[in-house]
Amino acid sequence: MGKIKVKKQNTFIDMTAMSDVTVLLLTFFMMTSTFLAKEPIQVTTPSSVSEFTIPETNKLTMLVDPSGKIFMTIDNQRNMGETLKRVGQDYGISFTDIEVDKFKQLAAFGVPIADMKAFLALSMEEQDKYLKENMGTDRAGIPTKGKEILNETTGETTVDNEFKHWIRHAAAVNEELNLGDLLLAIKADQTTPYPVIQTVLDNLRELRKNRYLLITSLKTASNQ
């Protein structure tokens, strides 16, 4: 009986090429992607056939949830800090530099200005917890209620609320920083009742802001 000679074969696979490919892919993903911003409320936007993509900078996004809670994001951090200081000033609250810095780190903000100081003192986890716990109350979301002001000349009443202060100051700061017009984007849940949207639009119109971007998701051809 002859011994069968087993040929010893090297099964070493060269991974260098594979590594090259993965590094390339990785570079691509790192370059092209923008991170998902963490938002305090989950919003499902309605779909439309509109194909305009949203500009990346210079915008203020209003997040509106079905119960009428409003959160805001401003994509320029310099603007954020300055806006906070001014809104605080309107309500007689001054913020320290540390608080302003902490405010700038927020992805989205939405607490009444009276609670802002206490909110900023919390750690990130505690802030999340705070928002979760207070979602059903008036202590989360930017208030759209306020005292009514009668305009003597026209006889019309307008409401003075924190929402308007935020928008007005954010737009003014943007102009002073020479960033141009601040775009107002509305990102509302598709189940939001119309009166909620109407409140937002009415407030904006009273500030003479008449142009908005409604954030939608693209409708695919199949469900058109």
């Binding site: 991170f35 009273e206 142009r211 954030i215």
Partner: peptide, 22 residues
């Protein structure tokens, strides 16, 4: 990176409202 990022930017719809001024 694939999971944590958005490649697609959201779409927007331009809306112009009439001014509230009389």
């Amino acid at each position: 990176f694939m999971m944590a990022t958005t490649l697609l930017k959201p779409q927007t719809m331009d809306l112009n409202m009439p001014s509230k001024d009389k």
